[in-house]
Nucleic acid binder design. Structure first.
Lengths: 233, 233
DNA sequence: AGGAACAAAAAGTACGACGTTTATGTCACA
DNA sequence: TGTGACATAAACGTCGTACTTTTTGTTCCT
């Protein structure tokens, strides 16, 4: 997936963002707007708009008389879903996947605890449905279907937490889960233990058992971390 | 604080971002680039660049023949420090402060635990120094000095965790702490219990006691949450 | 009523010109 | 030889205009 619809601007932005995230333009390198316009065969107007967006993500910095400088990684807006996507597509996907999974392991247990207190009946029902969907697709190479339910499940938990910051992490989680499924062991069925944990988590949330929900989510998280440890360098 | 240096672009971006974050342009409202150009007395070029940045933050959506539509809050990139600053300056600062504090309460304990394992001697020393600075400024209306040390302290912990996603949350924490200090009880000295907890946390990190570091940070977090509950609606 | 052709509105794109800042080199002077 | 003022040029910043494309509303014909 590149990004969205048509548009000259979109193409240039996506290409440049991908390149920078991949480290093809090391920090400190300067890009000239004229050169970029020539390279992509677009007007300087389009390039400038792209630069402005990249600048708002702190991927580059534009200064007069010097040009557009690529900024070091520490400056990047690493929570921007767009940036995350670019980085996950690049070379250090493993590193990125790991740090995002650690982030999940911090957030999701707390979110699950809150969800147990705040989830609406509709959310509980949807959660149970997702868990059942995971069970149904957990065997026989139905990884795409499983992934879909898995993403939906975690998204519901984050939304049900009632905290806006948690809810907006749904996209990040989706990227992580998708990345994990698509770039690691496509030949194995998901861990049965994880499936069970999700089912029990749906129950705990439905029953309003916050501490159990938090505990189960922590277990899911450590499972995910362990999975990364065995499957990645 | 508006944002950064000079530049026509910066001014328009900041003004519009502030207005949208404040809800002055409700979701669904359409802005026309020509109108904006007229209003700010700048060229359409400048307006378009601003729109593109706003669009990358998912604050607006630009479509042909219809105009620039303001998007609902759920779509916003609420992790973008710029967006956070805009929202914190607006009307629903209390709500925002609360959800950010909950986020902190999820992240920082885990980060502190990691910091206890990974912190370098230099980081430990800096941490202790910050804690001492907090003690020194904890009495006698030195709130600005205290804030400075407090921010530095938490930033070090997040950095020392070794996780990039945690580290990049330093700016958010800084905004929260600053917002809390500047918009609530400026007349009271900080809670002595909190000061003690920070000192003990610095010790725990230095000694590599991860579980104690996590526990102490949780205590700090519940203290902050409680403080919000008594001081805000 | 239904659909197809058409017209208008707004953003998207391009281009060329000029302004502004600032890194850098040069020259004079001590 | 070193230092400071000054000129220069390179890059981005801003502007105005003209043209293109897409979407949408309207009108007219069947």
């Amino acid at each position: 997936m590149t990004t969205q619809g048509p548009g000259l601007h979109t193409h240039v932005l996506d290409t440049l963002g991908l390149e920078i995230a991949a480290g093809e333009h090391p920090p400190g390198q300067v890009l000239r707007t004229d050169e970029l316009a020539q390279r992509f065969d677009v007007s300087r107007t389009v390039v400038r708009e792209v630069i402005r967006v990249l600048e708002s993500m702190h991927l580059v910095e534009s200064r007069r008389r010097v040009g557009v400088t690529v900024r070091p990684t520490e400056a990047w807006n690493v929570y921007d879903p767009q940036v995350i996507r670019w980085r996950l597509a690049g070379a250090d996907r493993p590193r990125q996947l790991r740090s995002l999974t650690v982030l999940r392991s911090a957030i999701e247990p707390v979110a699950a605890g809150l969800a147990a207190r705040n989830a609406t009946p509709e959310q509980c029902a949807a959660l149970t449905e997702c868990a059942l969907g995971m069970v149904a697709t957990s065997r026989g190479q139905q990884l795409e279907g499983y992934l879909e339910h898995d993403i939906a499940f975690h998204r519901i938990v984050l939304n049900a937490s009632g905290n806006e910051m948690f809810a907006r992490l749904g996209d990040v989680v989706a990227e992580v889960l998708a990345g994990r499924t698509h770039h690691q062991v496509m030949f194995e069925d998901p861990d049965p233990a994880a499936v069970t944990l999700h089912v029990r988590l749906a129950e705990a949330v439905r029953e309003g058992d916050a501490v159990e929900a938090e505990r189960l989510t922590k277990e899911i998280a450590v499972g995910a971390l362990h999975e990364l440890d065995v499957l990645a360098p």
